[in-house]
């Protein structure tokens, strides 16, 4: 009974975790750096959601769509301002970690200045229903909603990557930027778009995060980034579609820990991340093997 609940709950939340993390994976795949500002953008998305719902009385999930244009612009601005200088440095990969930490700090500071440091949360009733019954047990409505939204999101990412010209170019850049450039792909343009799309995915995940995490505050960013990184490591770095599988594994492991050893549940994401990195660095579902 409890086992069943933990597993179904794990799958539901896990699909949402995949959604939360997929933007980070896309950016890593294309630009080869970890966007440490990912979580801060998720938080921004949550604040946008709160404003829409509380100030404008609109459906909170609209935030997930409205965020599209500003995310693309932000992605392009960051990309063109930052990468030319970064790529000239001795160790772009490491420097980008620090750089994006700085950007995360700045975003967090701006969020605090604009929205104050007060915690914002929305009651579950904002979404309509409060719980849903599956196989005789009741699950929070936002878990089911998170999973239900994650499916089309991953569908759309799949279509984008495998059925469009831009997606083809994206995959080419992912496997080798030099080869991609040699066949006439505008690597910079593709990368800038991917960064924007990655930020958009983060922001739109934020509109659900405010419900699933029970609320948001500016200081949450780094924790969200580490969590998302765990998801993509488990799934396989550089393979966006595998993020959903990584999310489900993490969701189930976390729920099982909470059911049977709650005081250790916090160690689960980090323990899994270390185990996967040491035993199977390519991720449980990744195909690319990264040579150490």
């Amino acid at each position: 009974m409890l086992l069943e609940f933990a597993l179904i709950g794990g799958v539901l939340t896990g699909m949402y975790y995949g959604f939360l993390a997929v933007g980070l994976n896309l950016v890593f795949g294309v630009l080869r750096f970890v966007n440490l500002a990912h979580g801060s953008v998720v938080v921004l998305g949550s604040y946008l959601t709160w404003e829409l719902s509380n100030t404008w009385h609109l459906n909170p999930l609209l935030a997930g769509l409205i965020a599209f244009p500003p995310s693309l612009v932000l992605g392009a601005v960051i990309f063109y301002a930052v990468t030319p200088r970064l790529s000239r440095s001795a160790d772009p990969e490491m420097l980008s970690l620090i750089l994006f930490f700085g950007i995360a700090q700045a975003i967090e500071a701006i969020t605090t200045i604009v929205f104050t440091s007060n915690r914002r949360a929305l009651p579950g009733s904002t979404l309509g229903a409060s719980s849903v019954s599956i196989l005789g047990q009741r699950y929070p409505f936002y878990w089911v909603l998170g999973a239900a939204i994650a499916v089309p999101v991953f569908g759309a990412i799949y279509i984008y990557l495998y059925r469009t010209r831009l997606g083809l170019a994206t995959r080419a850049v992912m496997s080798s930027p030099d080869d991609a450039a040699s066949v006439g792909i505008d690597v910079k343009r593709v990368s800038a778009i991917c960064l924007g799309v990655g930020l958009f995915l983060a922001a739109s995940a934020g509109s659900l995060s405010i419900f699933i995490r029970g609320g948001t505050d500016p200081a949450q960013g780094i924790a969200v980034t580490t969590f998302a990184f765990t998801v993509i490591v488990i799934g396989g770095l550089g393979n966006p579609i595998s993020s959903i599988a990584g999310g489900v594994v993490l969701g189930c492991a976390y729920n099982l820990a909470q059911a049977y050893a709650p005081s250790w549940s916090g160690v689960i994401p980090y323990g899994l991340l270390l185990a996967v990195m040491l035993i199977r660095p390519s991720g449980l579902f990744g195909s690319q093997v990264r040579v150490a």
Binding site: L2, Y139, P140, P262, G266
Partner: peptide, 20 residues
């Protein structure tokens, strides 16, 4: 009688366990 990490934001499974 159980502790959870301070950063915990998800209690649903725990609630289920306690309900039992």
């Amino acid at each position: 009688f159980q502790s959870v990490p301070t950063a915990t934001t998800s209690y649903t499974t725990l609630i289920q366990e306690v309900a039992a």
